[in-house]
């Protein structure tokens, strides 16, 4: 694809992943020689409805968003899901554990009837997605990797192995050795194990690997003192949309 027209879209999200795109700084200038950014709310006031690539941040949490994302799919040749909300539903899916009515009341109080809401879901559950840029937030290098892959018409190199691989290659001390629980063994790598590197347990923001051994991982968490309920709530932080896998 030669210098495709690229548009960014925000759905239910904090827009932090688009902010990450803006921090690519030194490579951003080189990047805009390859792509023509025609809509990007966080960076420019111009807008266009004529685009080849739609980069979509956020999950689908309202009926109106379903129509909107379908229109985007109809217009774009390529749809990229940007960040955990778009790729796996992300933390927005936490609300799916409750009655929607209750959620509306908690969030909007008296105004509850003014705002509709539906269980949150990744954009893939509404439209076909071509590329996924995982994480909360995304990794800059992966954004570039996916952009290059689209332009070169090749599969991006996105790992389907767990965070442990990257963590161990960096020679980190395993957090389980220090009594810190970690989703690393079941979570897709590609983040360069940034959280475990800074002694924070992985929370699974990049989603599950394709074939996670959840029962063994659950045992591991319980050996580290977590009850079944606590273990499941760990998984649910980002994995609310895959609830059935955890129970």
């Amino acid at each position: 694809m030669s210098r495709p027209r690229v548009a960014f879209f925000s759905f239910s999200s904090c827009e932090g992943c688009q902010l990450v795109v803006l921090t690519i700084e030194e490579q951003l200038l080189e990047l805009v020689t390859l792509i023509d950014i025609v809509s990007f709310r966080e960076a420019m006031s111009e807008k266009s409805n004529d685009y080849d690539i739609a980069i979509v941040e956020g999950s689908i949490t309202r009926d109106s968003e379903i129509e909107r994302i379908k229109t985007i799919r109809d217009t774009a040749k390529v749809v990229v899901a940007l960040g955990a909300c778009a790729t796996i539903g992300g933390i927005n899916c936490l609300k799916n554990q409750f009655e929607m009515k209750k959620v509306q009341n908690i969030v909007y109080g008296k105004m509850a009837d003014t705002f509709d809401t539906i269980p949150a879901r990744p954009i893939e559950s509404v439209i076909k997605v071509d590329y996924w840029i995982h994480g909360c937030p995304i990794d800059r290098d992966e954004f570039i990797e996916v952009t290059k892959a689209i332009l070169l018409e090749k599969k991006p190199r996105i790992p389907d192995y767990p965070v442990c691989v990257e963590c161990q290659m960096k020679e980190n001390v395993c957090l389980f050795e220090k009594g810190i629980v970690c989703m690393g063994p079941i979570t897709r790598a590609g983040c360069k194990a940034i959280c475990p590197t800074y002694t924070d347990g992985c929370v699974g923001c990049r989603g599950l690997i394709d074939d996670p051994n959840l029962s063994s991982h659950k045992n591991l968490l319980s050996e580290h003192g977590l009850t079944v309920k606590e273990a499941i709530s760990q998984y649910m932080l980002f994995g609310g949309n895959s609830k059935e896998k955890f129970e």
Partner: peptide, 25 residues
């Protein structure tokens, strides 16, 4: 087994590798 690969990564005699191309911008 979690299939996490750590036993391979820390092994002094594991030498399997993947080969890939990385194009500049």
């Amino acid at each position: 087994c979690l299939g996490c690969g750590r036993c391979n990564i820390v092994c002094p005699t594991c030498y399997c590798f993947d080969v890939y191309d990385c194009m500049e911008l």
